[in-house]
Design a binder for these strands. Structure first.
Lengths: 335, 335
DNA sequence: GCACATTGTGAAACCGGTTTTAGAAATTTT
DNA sequence: AAAATTTCTAAAACCGGTTTCACAATGTGC
């Protein structure tokens, strides 16, 4: 592997001058610049990132921490983040925290610490952000955080208004008894969605709302709908806390031969691709997940390069996407 | 951040001795060992991986290259690889090659080269393995390669026998006209599955096989089945080249109100989780994807640590998992 | 008791970059 | 024309580890 000293020798200059050219920094005469540029190309020299990292205390690497990469929400996010990361000359470490104990996660973070990881995208709830913040002064972007975090960038979707839109939609197609299967309440996302549902159902003459606890998985959707139907046989609309729950609900309703949406209409939340492969396809509140990934990486790299550490919180809009599971005659009229 | 020299000073020894302790290598007296160990703990010293990497020419990092991380096959793989990687003290870079031109991928690989990435798990077909091999002498594990590769480790699933099992299963439940929607033939996986299908259908009195080209996506499943039904209205079994195709097929058959499996039975290949969320659930040939990820990481790290570069090829068995899409009375009898 | 191997240790060089320092040359100010 | 400033460059120190080298102390063989 050719080093900066090889280049220097061949160009008849000192390594320091080559370094100045490489970093576009400090005085270099036109003449030498030309020679050095030429030699660099000739030798196809590329500076060793590790050596560079040692002095610069940087590795040109970001880390993305997700709960479970097989969850389509996270893999979509990862795809967006990876694209921008690579585009801007960084690489992306993947950390799957799911199921690990927080202690182990701390170990992992520590491990990364002395690798000079430049920044973190935190998209997991297995880690306490406050603890994190105390221990790591690295730039971070936190996704779906509970609230704004001082000196960090948070990116979230407006879950509250998204939930309102979902509920209003179900009401608008005539649902009178709507159940919301909500996610775990330590999760800010789940909390906001439940709040939106409550708000929408208030003062809603002729309609009533049921709240039922779930846990953001397909299985939870299946089990919840079974229980719900036992207690409330007259339910005619389900607002699922996320798409996975919605998928479970649709699956179980199909099995029970309950017609969607004629007997029960279903709306999810997230906008993962899976909602388009079920029969019927599921109406959902689509989050710009891919865009969130892109944005997270872009903001993180910006903060790294500009030593920017103001509190910054970005809220993206979610969008109602109407599909077969809430359109009465959809299946027949489609195509 | 505390350095090895800080430790040395406090322990009253030279940095070299501390290094010897750290690496468990060379002579160190019991006495000093004890002191140094104590000081390391006291100061909570952790060697800087970047500095270490510079001399060792290693970054304790692997790179995983996938075509598309949102494809559940790859995310499952990534999860397995990430677990072992972390467990063995490495970290995992994620590279999404999908859609990029090969030229850009080469750039990316080059970029990684001077980061001292210790090894690569190649699970993408966007890169020509021969070119790769010529340019990078790093340890690599190649997934689903065409054939054995000299001096590298290849891991694949026995697609040929898996396909035979799938076809035999469809025949055993009485299918008489089976169509195989196969994937792109530059893909070794797709080729082997098609070959298995052909073998099984040969000398099969009373049954006939149709081969139809597809491309491993849900959309392809939808379009293929439409075309197939136009030409062959008497098809009663579909062996899809992979699960995504199968999902498309099921989706379209549902839309056309064709009963699965009564009128047409469907079998996929891969064993991704999605096959369990459709209605009906889809029979498939389950590959041990997660295990492949684990194995890939484990073998790669072994090869790195033991300078092991013999040709090594591992073939895993795929397993038929029978679900509703091929069991005539499944839906009613279930549960 | 002497040659030789083994154990133990610190100083110094090294990995491959960047940054500081110091001094020379060219320019601008006064 | 002298002083001050700016441009340009190389030598040396540095980042934080590892490794080589030289040398001392101890143990072993004959």
């Amino acid at each position: 592997m050719t080093t900066i000293r090889d280049v220097a020798k061949l160009a008849g200059v000192s390594p320091a001058t080559v370094s100045r050219v490489l970093n576009n920094k400090g005085y270099v005469s036109e003449e030498k610049l030309k020679i050095i540029d030429k030699v660099i190309k000739e030798m196809n020299f590329q500076p060793n990132q590790v050596a560079r990292g040692l002095t610069k205390k940087s590795s040109k690497t970001l880390a993305l921490l997700v709960t479970d990469i097989t969850n389509p929400f996270f893999s979509e996010l990862a795809k967006g983040a990876e694209k921008i990361t690579q585009q801007l000359g960084y690489s992306l470490l993947l950390g799957n925290t799911g199921g690990n104990n927080p202690e182990k996660n701390a170990d992992y973070m520590n491990f990364l610490k002395n690798k000079y990881i430049d920044g973190f995208i935190i998209a997991t709830h297995d880690i306490d952000v406050e603890v994190l913040k105390k221990n790591y002064k690295s730039p971070m972007v936190i996704l779906e955080a509970d609230k704004d975090i001082e000196n960090l960038c948070t990116i979230k979707v407006d879950n509250y208004h998204g939930a309102i839109e979902a509920t209003k939609h179900l009401l608008s197609i005539g649902c009178q008894k709507i159940a919301h299967i909500y996610g775990p309440q330590y999760d800010a996302t789940a909390k906001d969605r439940l709040r939106g549902f409550k708000t929408s159902m208030k003062h809603q003459e002729g309609s009533s709302g049921i709240e039922y606890p779930g846990d953001f998985s397909i299985m939870s959707g299946i089990e919840s709908i079974q229980e719900l139907l036992k207690k409330h046989s007259d339910i005619d609309g389900i607002f699922a806390g996320n798409d996975l729950i919605a998928i479970g609900v649709v699956k179980e309703l199909n099995r029970l031969k309950i017609k969607i949406p004629e007997q029960i209409a279903v709306c999810g939340f997230d906008g993962i691709t899976l909602t388009q492969i079920t029969s019927p396809e599921i109406t959902t509140i689509e989050q710009p997940i891919y865009k969130m990934g892109e944005l997270a990486a872009e903001r993180l790299i910006y903060r790294i390069n500009h030593s920017f550490n103001e509190t910054e919180s970005i809220e993206l809009k979610a969008k109602l996407v109407i599909r077969e599971s809430t359109v009465k005659s959809a299946i027949d009229s489609k195509q």
